[in-house]
Amino acid sequence: MKIDAVGLFVNDMERMVAFYRDVVGLKTNWNGDADAAFEAGGCRLIMYGRRDFENMTAQTYGYPKGRNGTMEIAFALPSYGAVDAEYERLVSLGAEAVFPPATMPWGQRTGYVADPEGNLLEIGSFGG
């Protein structure tokens, strides 16, 4: 098997689509439906409204509130400098600053921001 997509179940589709399209810069052709798909390199990022998903599956789910340490979406950049620039760009456009870029002992430069619903985004590079 190969991972085709990573999905987020969201409260506010319009706000989250706008963030990932306009701030992060992922391409989508979302037209207001209950789900959205974004091109993210070799994988897709998909979103589905929480209420719509619960209605579809006839289930009720528990969701984290606030900043969410359940998972992360990791973005790879070509260089350490690109990590610093992208972190600053995302924060200046409204992403929540979580952890400023730092070079880790294993050689990766990484920083974290959060999207409007608290999901963590890692911005990292192994290239100096």
Rank of each mutant, 00 (worst) to 15 (best):
W30F: 08
F38H: 02
Y20S: 08
V24I: 15
G25E: 10
R21S: 00
A37V: 15
N31D: 13
C43Y: 09
Y48L: 12
W30A: 03
A40K: 09
C43Q: 13
R44C: 11
I46R: 07
L45G: 00
T28C: 08
R44L: 12
E39I: 10
G25L: 12
M47S: 01
E39S: 13
G41F: 09
W30Q: 06
M47I: 04
A40D: 09
A36F: 03
A36R: 05
V24E: 05
E39F: 11
N29C: 07
N31S: 10
G32R: 06
Y20L: 03
M47L: 14
N31M: 05
L26R: 09
M47F: 10
F19D: 04
I46F: 01
A34S: 12
A36C: 06
A34T: 08
D22I: 02
G42R: 11
N29L: 09
F38R: 04
F19W: 02
D33E: 15
A40Y: 10
N29K: 14
D35T: 15
L45I: 13
F19T: 07
E39R: 13
G25V: 10
G41E: 09
C43F: 11
A18S: 03
D33A: 15
V23S: 13
W30K: 06
W30H: 07
F38E: 00
N31C: 02
D22R: 07
F19L: 03
E39P: 03
Y20W: 08
D35R: 14
F19C: 02
N31I: 06
G42Y: 11
L45R: 06
F19Y: 04
G42H: 11
I46M: 13
A37M: 15
G49E: 09
A36P: 09
L45N: 01
Y48E: 14
K27T: 05
E39V: 13
G32I: 06
R44M: 12
C43M: 15
T28Y: 08
A34K: 10
V23Y: 09
A37H: 11
G32V: 03
A37S: 15
I46P: 00
N29H: 14
D33L: 11
G41M: 12
V24P: 06
F38T: 02
R21H: 07
V24C: 02
E39D: 14
Y48R: 10
A18K: 00
A37Q: 14
G25C: 08
F38M: 01
K27A: 12
G32F: 08
Y48T: 14
D35Q: 15
C43K: 10
A36E: 02
R21Y: 07
V24R: 10
F38I: 00
A36H: 05
